[in-house]
């Protein structure tokens, strides 16, 4: 028995057990929850949304393979790619010219993610980086919203609720309902309810920590109150819910310790509202989170877990 064991024995160091979570599983569940707002978007906007999503997925995979070839890495599929594709597609306006969506996908994967070192190394969220790039380069098509009409409907151009262009009364129940179900014009994932369901699944399955999204939503609402605006409207409109559950919780581009994540979220909330209320852009979520992404290494440097009993010794920047 001994010699038979020797042949197949393996030397490992402890621990010899490990938890059930794997990175792949985390990403797979995130991807599955993203399908909920994606389905909502396709229901609202029909083929106008579907084609954008399909093009983003195909283009992101193509960009991923291209980068791996260029960097001489194995072509192992990485679940981060479809997540980036869906996050980008869902934050684009339906009916966007497809070549713009494809260009954004290539920018997100090749420049924002792979040029910084690939999975786990990127400073900015690839999907948000791509969206900011498209907003700056193609301002007109990126802010051209259409009325939700399902499959086969004509694309009727309209204004986004944040630009003050809806028929519904501000603060009216009708408007909340429209924002919840995505009946108000917006990006493909504009139904706040679908995003909340997806986000809640992530929280319940403990894929993400609930503290950061809560901090973000609360800070947005509080600042809206302080400025005499309707907090519920500001939380439900634009990308706040989307950002709270799917961008603020991106582990790679946010601080690594949870108090740092809360600071990140509050900072993003403040910036979002400042851009909305004082800036020129109608929605500030994209830039707010990107700015906080840039501050992440700084937050990480100062917000560290307190080593047991080491308080009086060594602290601050090394």
């Amino acid at each position: 028995m001994n010699s038979a064991f020797k042949d197949k024995s393996r030397l490992t160091t402890g621990p010899h057990l490990w938890g059930g979570f794997s990175t792949n599983r985390i990403m797979l569940i995130t991807l599955a929850t993203l399908l909920i707002p994606a389905a909502g978007g396709v229901y609202q906007y029909g083929e106008q949304a579907l084609w954008v999503i399909v093009v983003c997925i195909v283009a992101c995979y193509a960009a991923d393979i291209l980068c791996r070839k260029l960097r001489g890495q194995p072509l192992r599929p990485d679940m981060g790619t479809p997540i980036t594709a869906l996050l980008l597609a869902l934050s684009l306006p339906p009916g966007l010219p497809l070549w713009i969506a494809a260009l954004g996908s290539f920018f997100g994967i090749c420049i924002v993610k792979e040029a910084f070192g690939g999975l786990g190394q990127n400073i900015f969220n690839p999907a948000l980086g791509a969206r900011a790039f498209l907003l700056a380069s193609f301002a007109a098509p990126m802010t051209r919203w259409i009325e939700p009409g399902g499959f086969g409907a004509d694309a009727i151009t309209t204004a986004s609720p944040l630009a003050g262009g809806t028929a519904a009364e501000p603060g009216g129940l009708e408007l909340y309902q429209a924002l919840l179900f995505g009946d108000a014009p917006g990006v493909i994932a504009s139904g706040a309810l679908f995003l909340m369901v997806g986000g809640l699944i992530l929280v319940i399955l403990r894929i993400v920590d609930f503290r950061a999204p809560v901090a973000y939503i609360v800070s947005v609402a509080l600042i809206a109150l302080a400025f005499g605006e309707d907090p519920a409207f500001h939380v439900l409109a634009g990308g706040v819910i989307f950002g709270a559950f799917f961008f603020i919780t991106d582990p790679v581009t946010t601080p690594v310790h949870w108090p740092g994540r809360v600071i990140f979220a509050v900072g993003a909330g403040v910036l979002t509202m400042l851009i909305r209320l004082l800036g020129a852009a109608p929605d500030g979520v994209t830039y707010a989170i990107l700015i906080m992404n840039a501050l992440t290494p700084l937050i990480d440097r100062y917000i560290k877990p307190g080593p047991m009993g080491a308080k009086e010794v060594k602290s601050g920047p090394a």
Binding site: T12, T23, N24, I26, L119, P251, T254, W258, P305, M308
Partner: peptide, 25 residues
């Protein structure tokens, strides 16, 4: 059993920090 764990890139999820009993990162 002799299973070996596949190693992949760190995604900075912070689970190790939450698990550390002495507050290290």
């Amino acid at each position: 059993n002799g299973h070996k764990r596949q190693e992949s890139a760190c995604i900075r999820c912070g689970r190790c920090i939450a698990a550390c009993p002495v507050g290290l990162a």
